[in-house]
Every structure is written in C-alpha cells, then in structure tokens.
C-alpha cells in the first residue's frame, strides 16, 4: 500500500480504473434483423447464458437449428472459426441424431462441431461448466430434455458465471416438454416453425422460424418475429410475407434470362407481396 501511495496521482487513477478485459464487457453480435437487434440493444450478447425453448414437441429440430444459427451469428467475426461444442445426452442423439450434411446445409462446417455425448443431466451440466471456462471455444450448446430437477437457478447461475469469466456463450436448448423456470439467462426464446417462402415449383424454401423473446434481463420482451435464415451471409433476415415466391438462384430451374425476352414473364419470379 505504501508503495502505491507514492505513485503519481494520474497514474494511480489510471491503474485503479483499468479497463476490464475485453470479454468482460458484453460483446454484441447482431442477428441481422434490425427489429430484433434494436430490442436486444445491438445484438445477442456473448458471454451470457441464452435459453431456447421448443414451442412444441414437433419444433425440436427447429430449436436445434436455431441454436446452430445463433452459434454461427456469435462466431461470424472470429478468425479462424472457433470450434463449437455440443453437449447432448446419448439418448437424444440415438433418437434423432444430428446429421453432418444437414449442419453443412445450415452453414456450419461439421468439422467445427465437437459432439459430446453424456450419460445424464449431472454429467452434462458439469461438462458444460468445464467447457465454459475454456476461452478457446466459440459457443457451447447444452441440450437438455424435459425439466430436470438439477437444472435449477443455482445450476444456471453457475453456467452464467463461468461464461462471463471466459466470454464463451452458452446456449441452453430445452426440448421435450421443457417449461421455463427461474434461471440466470440473459435472454429466453421460444422457437416455433414458420411457413417458408416457397421457391420455384412450390418447393419448400429457406428455413423460417418464429422467434419469440419471452424474457430479457434488463430489456423489453414479449415480442416475436418471423425470420428466415440466410446461410450465405450467416445471419437472419426478416421473412417475406408467406406465400411470396422467390426465384431459385443460379438459374437452374427458373426461366433463363436470355430466353425471357419480355421481362413481364420474369415478374412472377420476384417477390410478389
């Protein structure tokens, strides 16, 4: 103490008010939809716990996809792309396994994903806390089915604290009839499937989801948005009005430009809102 008191006052001030490490301040990653980013105060906060609930039993694949999409949003700017750890119960993987080509089709290179299969909730939460202390990961997805008693406020706070210290973002995916309980999550979302914007020949289009923000710590909530996943940009975009038609890119099955002299024919292939 006696040594510091002899320091120059300006230096002392600078030392005491030293800026916290970069990850301590929440870094915000925009999701790409202005309305959502405005509500979130700029984007999804890294280093904080986010919860994703499946709207219904049939929405589980959509909720998993939403976790993949959010993880991609969170790691978009980092180079080289960091690894993403997915903690899953063995039973869940046996029932509906994550499919490598499907991940690639959402824009996540499967080589970046490390799948960790765990026997039970306790092992999963413990592995989750350990993983969150490891700053080298891009995001940690914890997938839990039902309402395990172990996942209480204390457990979620433990996850949130580990995340804040390292800056790694935990995404807690709750499936199989999970109900929201008090937790330390910064945001809580409900994911449901939404009709996609059909492509040519009435083909199902890009992944479309309805994201409902159920709760946000220190911010507005209770809103929902229907969004579409833009794999090529790695972000969401507002979904076009359902029933609109979009052209297939690359001109594979749409009318080619040199064939269509009259541009009127082409009009039908653009968004008709």
């Amino acid at each position: 103490m006696s040594k510091t008191s002899r320091l120059h006052p300006a230096l002392k001030r600078a030392l005491t008010s030293a800026t916290p490490p970069a990850h301590a301040a929440a870094r915000l990653h925009p999701l790409g939809v202005p309305a959502i980013d405005r509500t979130l105060g700029g984007g999804l906060a890294a280093g904080h716990l986010h919860e994703l609930f499946a709207g219904d039993g049939a929405d589980e694949a959509n909720t998993l996809a939403a976790a993949v999409m959010l993880a991609l949003c969170l790691t978009r700017v980092a180079t080289p792309a960091p690894a993403i750890l997915w903690l899953r119960e063995t039973a869940a993987q046996r029932k509906a396994g994550l499919h490598g080509p499907g991940l690639a089709d959402l824009g996540l290179n499967p080589a970046r994903l490390i799948l960790c299969l765990l026997p039970d909730t306790a092992a999963l939460l413990r592995a989750g806390v350990d993983a969150l202390r490891c700053a080298g990961l891009g995001a940690v997805v914890l997938e839990l089915g039902g309402n395990p008693a172990l996942l209480d406020l204390t457990a979620s706070r433990r996850l949130a604290l580990a995340a804040e210290a390292s800056g790694v973002t935990p995404l807690l995916v709750r499936t199989r009839g999970a109900r929201p309980t008090p937790s330390a999550a910064r945001t809580r979302w409900q994911v449901t499937a939404a009709p996609s914007v059909a492509l040519a020949a009435d083909a199902p289009g890009h992944p479309a989801l309805t994201l409902a923000l159920l709760r946000q710590r220190g911010g507005g909530a209770g809103l929902d948005w229907t969004v579409e996943w833009n794999r090529d940009a790695g972000c969401f975009r507002p979904a076009a009005f359902p029933g609109a038609r979009l052209p297939l890119s690359g001109g594979g099955s749409g009318p080619s430009s040199d064939e269509a002299d009259g541009s009127d024919d082409n009009a039908g292939w653009h968004i008709a809102v």
Partner: peptide, 18 residues
C-alpha cells in the same frame, strides 16, 4: 465437407431419424 451452393435451401435434414 463440401460447401453447399449459395442460395440453395437446405437439401439435407438437420436431424436424421435412425
């Protein structure tokens, strides 16, 4: 892993039932 062509919707499912 091959990168999917831009603009295509996903052609393979995320979850595969086995």
């Amino acid at each position: 892993w091959a990168t999917p062509p831009p603009g295509e919707p996903p052609l393979r499912p995320l979850a595969l039932l086995d």
